[in-house]
Simulated assay, not measured.
Amino acid sequence: MLQLLTPQPARHPAPTVHAQSLAFLIFERPDLAEAEKFLMDFGLHVAFRSEDELYFRSAGSDPYCYRIVRGEQARFVGFGLSVAERSDLEKLTSLAGASDIEDIQGLGGGAFVQLRDPSGFTVQAVWGRAAVTPLPHRAALALNQGDTHPRINVTQRPAIDPPEVLRVGHVVLEVADFQATCAWYTEHFGFIPSDVQVLPDGSPAVAFLRLNLGDTPADHHTLALAQGFMPCYSHSAFEVIDTDAVGMGQRILRERGWTHAWGIGRHILGSQIFDYWQDPWGDKHEHYCDGDLFSADIPTGIHEVNRAAMAQWGQPMPASFTKPKISTANVVGMVHSLRHSPDLSIRKLITLAKLFG
């Protein structure tokens, strides 16, 4: 039986708070018009626009799920996690580096506390955002399968439009300081490891972390952390209604000239049917449907990590999917991490390169 030979990932017995959902993502972009073009083709809708900011919403009831701030460099800043009570914000203000409770000056209102995780990503804990009216979207298509034939004398003709994104589902980050970062999220936001992929030495390579919602089923992962050589964004994922919506997304994005990253396929861990696309700066965005849901009592699974373990069917994961961006800053970051991170070594980097290179 595979064993995890490091303290993390592990659920914490008494977290500071229990996060309730992934609220939004935050990016900086030098060209807001180009960012808008991609995200509209991807299936999001502009909720607010100014000279220096763009807010996008899904078809769901959140006021926005994607925020872009104008910046000189294209970069991922962080994300928001919703909490259940204002008192949760008060608890979080006691953490090192936390801001005071501040009112949200923008869409949805409410209040937030801003924190920074051990890998340097911004995390905004938010409470009290006002819901908006959901946008209309088509129902999942009725499928004739085997002995079940719900569709008689009726054809299937979904509209040839960008897929209707229902919500932001999860975000995946690469980190150098894996143990400290994973411990921070399990201790302070109550994340539970659903599945962990381990290297041959038993150390974690990827942890898929779900929300602890008790008996209420939660997505297999809302946050995933991967061992890398420096902190960076891997991808974010957005739920659509069904497989046809995933396929229609591929058609639309391909016809409109965007760069495909990987898919269509079905993941092994999480079971999602997926398709990945790159935005104008090469950052990956995923359409998915049919993901697993777990209640809090389901234990953690431990698995060997390898490229074949990433998908049940479909195109094998291309080497370009995990290939790091080569830049002076990244080389400097890798050297810094090798010198200072207790979770990294030359041997581990070589192992990761052989597995995914």
Rank of each mutant, 00 (worst) to 15 (best):
M1Y: 12
L4N: 01
L5Y: 01
L5S: 02
Q8E: 09
P9M: 09
P13E: 07
P15T: 00
S21C: 13
S21K: 14
L25I: 03
F27H: 05
L32V: 03
E34I: 00
K37I: 02
F38P: 06
L39E: 07
M40K: 11
G43L: 02
A47G: 15
E51H: 11
D52W: 15
D52K: 09
E53S: 11
L54A: 03
F56Y: 11
A59C: 14
P63K: 15
Y64W: 10
C65D: 06
I68V: 13
I68E: 01
V69N: 11
F76C: 15
G80W: 12
E85W: 08
D88M: 14
L89V: 13
E90A: 14
E102K: 10
D103E: 14
G109D: 09
F112L: 13
V113C: 07
Q124R: 12
A130C: 07
A130E: 13
A131L: 09
T133D: 15
L135Y: 06
L143F: 04
P150Q: 08
R151M: 03
A159L: 15
V171M: 06
F178D: 14
F178T: 07
C182R: 01
A183G: 09
A183W: 13
W184H: 05
T186N: 05
F189M: 11
F191I: 10
S194L: 10
D195E: 08
V198H: 02
D201E: 02
D201L: 00
A205L: 14
L211A: 12
G214D: 11
H220I: 04
H220Q: 01
L223E: 08
A226P: 11
A226K: 11
Y233K: 13
S236Y: 12
S236T: 12
V246L: 00
G247F: 09
G247E: 06
Q250P: 00
I252A: 06
L253E: 07
R256D: 08
T259F: 01
A261M: 06
R266Q: 05
R266C: 08
H267Q: 07
S271N: 05
Q272D: 04
I273H: 08
C289V: 00
D290A: 04
D290Q: 01
T300A: 06
I302Q: 06
I302K: 06
H303S: 02
R307V: 01
M310L: 11
F321Q: 11
P324D: 01
I326D: 05
S327D: 00
V331K: 10
L338C: 10
L338P: 10
L349N: 14
F356Q: 01
